[in-house]
């Protein structure tokens, strides 16, 4: 017997995949995107606040940021999602009604913020102190100098690490199924799971996995491309090098 037959039959049943595909596309994919994109936005904003607090000269900002980061980075994501999603459910009920998405997004954002905060902080701290001095010497306040000069440079330096975190977030979005989802709220993974449970064949789960790859792989390549461009500048501008730089790159002097 083919030792891999279980693998083929259980995970690569095209028929089972085709059956799950329409619901994956119309329900699962939009829901995963809603969860991941809103948590990415909120998590990045919170992460930036944490990063700024983390480099603050005020102990009362630095310390809470430190503790927050340690806690939310240290807890398993599933534990945080349950803690927020179930612990705050009565509160959520009052504000948003029975929809588990707001608390799910909140929990995902809080987790992502802990990591993204550290990523942004390391980027911001890598910007040379001379840049701050240069901006202050022009008359910018500390806040303006940070916002216009330091943070944009710091964030650019850590774009790949930031996207890594967004990829983790896309995958972690599947964990909101802990909170109990009605049919129309199911995201990719949950739909795959439901098909697997009713058919006894895991192929729909593999299909869900393929959807995650379709989301994450292009994201990685896009950010690498952007990163390269930011480091080198647009290709056309490179043609405008000055005569005294030309020998260094071995081109024919004009």
């Amino acid at each position: 017997m083919d030792p891999l037959s279980t693998l083929w039959e259980t995970f690569f049943d095209w028929h089972a995949m085709r059956e799950a595909l329409p619901e994956m596309l119309t329900v699962g994919l939009p829901n995963t995107l809603i969860l991941a994109v809103s948590a990415a936005l909120l998590g990045s904003v919170l992460g930036m606040l944490l990063a700024i607090a983390g480099i603050s000269r005020t102990r009362w900002l630095r310390w809470p940021a430190r503790v927050y980061t340690d806690v939310f980075r240290g807890l398993p994501a599933a534990a945080t999602i349950l803690l927020i999603g179930i612990g705050l459910a009565p509160l959520g009920m009052r504000v948003w009604g029975p929809n588990p998405y707001p608390l799910g997004v909140l929990a995902l954002s809080l987790i992502a913020a802990a990591y993204i905060g550290e990523i942004f902080r390391s980027g911001i701290q890598s910007v040379e102190a001379a840049q701050l001095e240069g901006a202050r010497a022009l008359g910018f306040s500390w806040g303006e100098a940070m916002r216009l000069v330091i943070v944009p440079q710091g964030v650019r330096r850590v774009l790949p690490a930031w996207v890594n975190q967004l990829i983790a977030l896309i995958k972690d979005s599947s964990l909101v199924y802990f909170l109990g989802l009605v049919a129309s709220q199911r995201e990719l993974f949950r739909i795959g799971q439901d098909y697997a449970a009713t058919t006894g064949n895991e192929s729909a789960l593999l299909l869900a996995g393929l959807f995650y790859l379709v989301l994450t792989v292009p994201l990685t390549h896009a950010v690498n491309w952007i990163d390269r461009r930011l480091r080198q500048g647009p290709a056309v501008a490179g043609a405008d090098l000055d005569a005294d730089l030309v020998p260094a790159i071995g081109k024919d002097p004009r």
């Binding site: 001379a130 840049q131 001095e133 240069g134 901006a135 202050r136 010497a137 022009l138 008359g139 910018f140 306040s141 000069v149 440079q153």
Partner: peptide, 17 residues
């Protein structure tokens, strides 16, 4: 900050953005 708009400064390492 207002003073520094009246007093321009140029650095050894340029400090361009």
């Amino acid at each position: 900050d207002a003073l520094r708009q009246r007093v321009g400064m140029v650095f050894q390492q340029f400090n361009l953005f």
